[in-house]
Simulated assay, not measured.
Amino acid sequence: MTKARPLSLITGASAGIGSAFARALAARAHDVVLTARRTDRLEALADELRGQHGVNATVLTNDLADPHGVEQLCAALDERGLQVDWLVNNAGYGVPGRFDQNDWPVHADFLRVLVTAPTELAWRLISGMRERGYGRIVNVASLAGHVPGSAGHTLYAASKAYMIKFSQSLALENLGIGVNVCALCPGFTYSEFHDVTGTRALVSKMPGFMWQRADDVVREGIDAVERGDAVHVTGRFNRTVKSLFKLMPDRMALRMSAKQSKRYRAQDAE
């Protein structure tokens, strides 16, 4: 690498796991590009990172639900001469309620943000990583991608399962050339996610041992991608859950998922 500092692009950087990634990478002397829809939050975070770590922090407000959002984001990077070494595909949210009770544009936007945009960003940026012989891609997936789907939030687990398989294939395609790809799979994480989906009251009933702090998730994720792990499930509890579901017969696993999902998924739109 010829640059003084690596450059990290973090999507969904305005809160939660995204802002935790930005802080952790800036603390490791990475310059950062922060993107999300909320400019005020991004600017506040950028000021914090410049002041605490002396790094360059660039804010590029962007809506990945826009079909041209990724193209516009990459054009903005090119205009500034910014070459991305670390891509953290973190942007995401949930759509509560039953599948048919939401309008199709709601689902279309969701799929663009959680599936199409991270895939396109990886496609647009990985060639430069390969040419330079160095790169890291962290696709923030979920424990939900390893267990049976739930009633309500219909597309969420499906999108995360896609990101896991996509990350595995991309990791295999880039073995031994200095480009590592990892699907990071947290479980319940303290963030705004459940406030946005309207399930805070439900998930607040979950016991504390099921939860992780965002900075702990991020620390595990950085270590995992540096090791070259194609998939990493964070936390001992979450790894146990994954293993148990893997051993169960499909019918039993689906019945258990149906029972447990009532505890934390909004299944019917009001």
Score class of each variant (00 low, 15 high):
residue 240 T to K: 08
residue 32 V to K: 05
residue 99 F to R: 09
residue 48 E to K: 09
residue 231 V to D: 03
residue 154 T to R: 12
residue 101 Q to W: 09
residue 145 G to E: 11
residue 52 Q to T: 07
residue 246 K to T: 15
residue 85 D to I: 03
residue 32 V to N: 05
residue 198 G to K: 02
residue 210 M to C: 04
residue 172 L to P: 07
residue 164 I to D: 14
residue 63 D to A: 00
residue 85 D to V: 02
residue 76 A to Y: 02
residue 253 A to Y: 06
residue 101 Q to T: 06
residue 19 S to F: 12
residue 259 K to H: 08
residue 75 A to Y: 02
residue 214 A to Q: 00
residue 114 L to E: 09
residue 113 V to D: 10
residue 225 V to N: 04
residue 199 T to F: 01
residue 141 A to Y: 14
residue 134 Y to Q: 11
residue 84 V to R: 00
residue 128 G to H: 09
residue 225 V to Y: 04
residue 84 V to L: 01
residue 156 Y to H: 08
residue 60 L to F: 10
residue 197 T to R: 07
residue 97 G to T: 05
residue 198 G to F: 03
residue 142 S to V: 06
residue 113 V to I: 09
residue 37 R to H: 01
residue 78 D to H: 12
residue 202 L to V: 01
residue 93 Y to M: 04
residue 134 Y to V: 09
residue 204 S to G: 08
residue 68 H to T: 15
residue 71 E to F: 01
residue 197 T to S: 10
residue 129 M to E: 15
residue 149 G to A: 08
residue 92 G to W: 04
residue 240 T to N: 02
residue 256 M to T: 12
residue 150 S to T: 10
residue 23 R to M: 08
residue 35 T to Q: 03
residue 233 V to T: 07
residue 104 W to I: 11
residue 92 G to P: 01
residue 251 R to N: 14
residue 152 G to Y: 10
residue 74 C to F: 01
residue 163 M to S: 12
residue 68 H to K: 14
residue 71 E to W: 01
residue 270 E to R: 13
residue 152 G to A: 01
residue 18 G to E: 11
residue 86 W to F: 04
residue 105 P to H: 05
residue 21 F to W: 11
residue 73 L to F: 15
residue 103 D to I: 07
residue 251 R to Q: 10
residue 130 R to M: 02
